[in-house]
Design a protein around this nucleic acid. Structure first.
Lengths: 138, 138
DNA sequence: TGTAATTTTGTAATCATTTCAATTTTGAAA
DNA sequence: TTTCAAAATTGAAATGATTACAAAATTACA
């Protein structure tokens, strides 16, 4: 996304486009690698020397609350963020930790069977296993 | 599960039934509340004063590796453990943090669409939203 | 019984995340 | 343009879950 597109995307989600927020959202739109907070911070700080890691935390929490990004809990150590909010699942290799996108047909998304006392907003689908590289390296 | 059943269950998963392992697995079979490490430790330590929290960590890692329990990453703060390894999904209330079981028909489990380079062993399905109590309390 | 392998334990270290108060920036009103 | 309050950012310190590690205890078996 270019800067105008990022501004528009943020405004659509009720987020005021500060310099930091625009930079972080643009980064996410260009790095669909499910980065951690730390990766985002370390990649952005050379061009934004005053950036604080707390701001990265604050900003991604805001984006997630406003549903402008996905937060993935697939890894027990770090939360991963995904700028692609379309319907898809994720695969984590338990050996090397790599996270892959997994396409999902709309029909594959399970319907919520939890009864009327729970109001879901969000569905997360994770597959865990081993990737080809790690199987070959054994 | 009684002690014999726990022994049998552990052996089925290639786990040697030490006193600590039996106690932890029995606890999990009786508390299907998705407890954290801390909850398990604090509930068991009064009757096992020498129990170490490290042992609880080691043991649950072993159980998970041997697929004798489920590990849930639905909460970004703590890993939750589930002694019920049958097919079901989970719901987390974003307001109060409560975690509920969600029944799933086998037909509802999405088929893996990730291609032949990834070998899934495990599928996790999370719904996130708000529970009735929290909606009423607003 | 002796001995090696396995398991458990407790302490210390690590590291992601949160808290919080101070500073800076923004935006609207005068 | 200046003023001022609200919002956002910052950095340091605290928190808290998890891991590393080496010593002690237990187990299994020759």
């Amino acid at each position: 996304m270019n800067i105008q597109e990022v501004h528009h995307h943020l405004k659509e989600h009720d987020i005021k486009p500060s310099v930091q927020r625009v930079a972080i959202m643009q980064y996410l739109s260009e790095h669909l690698t499910h980065p951690t907070i730390d990766q985002i911070y370390h990649d952005l700080v050379p061009d934004m020397p005053t950036l604080s890691k707390t701001t990265v935390y604050n900003t991604l929490k805001l984006f997630y609350d406003k549903k402008a990004v996905l937060a993935l809990f697939i890894d027990e150590k770090n939360v991963r963020y995904d700028g692609d909010t379309s319907n898809h699942a994720h695969f984590k290799c338990k050996k090397c930790g790599a996270i892959y996108d997994v396409p999902l047909e709309a029909a594959d998304i399970p319907s919520f069977g939890g009864g009327s006392d729970l109001y879901p907003e969000e569905t997360q689908i994770y597959f865990l296993g081993t990737c080809k590289k790690c199987i070959q390296n054994q």
